[in-house]
Write a protein that binds this DNA or RNA. Structure first.
Lengths: 202, 202
DNA sequence: CCTACCGATCGGTAGG
DNA sequence: CCTACCGATCGGTAGG
């Protein structure tokens, strides 16, 4: 087999171990407060070893963000692939996004603020990956506006919706009174107004 | 006068200079990436001098957050003191909160995430100050729900609204196409649904 | 991927 | 509030 040639080809699984640990620690403690030693220890390496896989701490952040965004976008696509009705589609997307944020190990949107530690070129790459993540949302919001369920789908609407969702890690606790499904429903209700059969409550 | 006694009483104005500079730098670069030397330089002091006014860098963060929250709460109260109609009241509060976040030098809510650098006791004090900031919001949301303009005023509604607003510093640019008044209007419209005369567009 | 190490920086203090 | 300084830590590298 093509194994163990000259300078030992970097092991892809160790690389992704580092990325997962880095993402988790960056979210937990912040980019600056996380040391490369923390990351190394989290995967059972010694202090200098992460630099065998990544040129710098910044490159770890960049790779973790882009990988996390791509994985999240994939989950998003899978969750709403077969749903034609815009409202049901939005509900599925909100639920999938909350899942990305709150129950997966790819909480890339939470790291958006940490990109200030990166250079402009890297920030631009991450912004592009984030645009790809946001694109399906705009499509769905446009459909809701076209069917009259939403007053407007102008850009601020999408950004305000993202804010609503991306702030949840600040307060949501999985052991609290609200399930993720209930939270997703509350978000959609807030966006689209009360459910159609509002006559019940009067 | 009672001036220049023995160990020189700390000058209150220098103290608040430090707090303002610290708040701005903490928002800009993050707590960990901001050095106490940065803060000293911003007010024309030498490296060790901030520690004449504050015991530690953490104490600077804590004081900046609590001071910023109190000042913001005061501005909030002033903005909606005389408004009885719940919808107009909410609009004024949203506008005032966006002002706190985006045009004042007390962007305390943006620093909430940085409190992870503090000990539990300090975090609890900050949480209490933040509760005082949130209280008038709940009152207004309850009034809107009672008048039927909002489907629910359960706690998640307030938290989702705060998320919508607190995320705006991530994307809003004061030199962009949207004024703060327009942004505030868009937020309220998203919350309460389209304005009453929706028949115009059909 | 480890050992050993370096230069730089940082929070904080002493002593005035 | 300044000068001078310390101990600790950190990102990163050499060399294998």
């Amino acid at each position: 087999m093509a194994r163990g040639r000259k300078p030992l080809p970097p092991d892809a699984s160790r690389r992704s171990d580092l990325l997962r640990a880095a993402a988790r620690l960056f979210v937990e403690k912040g980019f600056d407060a996380t040391t490369t030693r923390d990351i190394a220890e989290a995967v059972g390496m010694r202090a200098g070893s992460p630099f065998y896989h990544f040129r710098s701490k910044q490159e770890l952040l960049k790779a973790a963000m882009i990988g996390g965004l791509e994985a999240g976008a994939e989950r998003l696509r899978a969750a709403c692939a077969d749903i034609a009705d815009p409202e049901a589609r939005l509900r599925a997307m909100v639920r999938a996004h909350l899942g990305n944020l709150l129950e997966n190990e790819c909480p890339a949107p939470m790291l958006l603020g940490e990109t200030r530690a990166l250079e402009a070129a890297d920030r631009a790459e991450i912004a592009a990956a984030f645009d790809r993540y946001q694109h399906p949302w705009q499509t769905t919001l446009d459909a809701l506006a076209a069917s009259g369920k939403l007053a407007s789908s102008a850009p601020p609407v999408r950004l305000l919706l993202f804010g609503m969702l991306n702030w949840t890690p600040q307060w949501y606790r999985s052991d609290g009174p609200l399930t993720l499904d209930q939270l997703a429903a509350a978000c959609v209700e807030l966006l689209l107004g009360q459910p159609p059969d509002r006559s019940v409550s009067g």
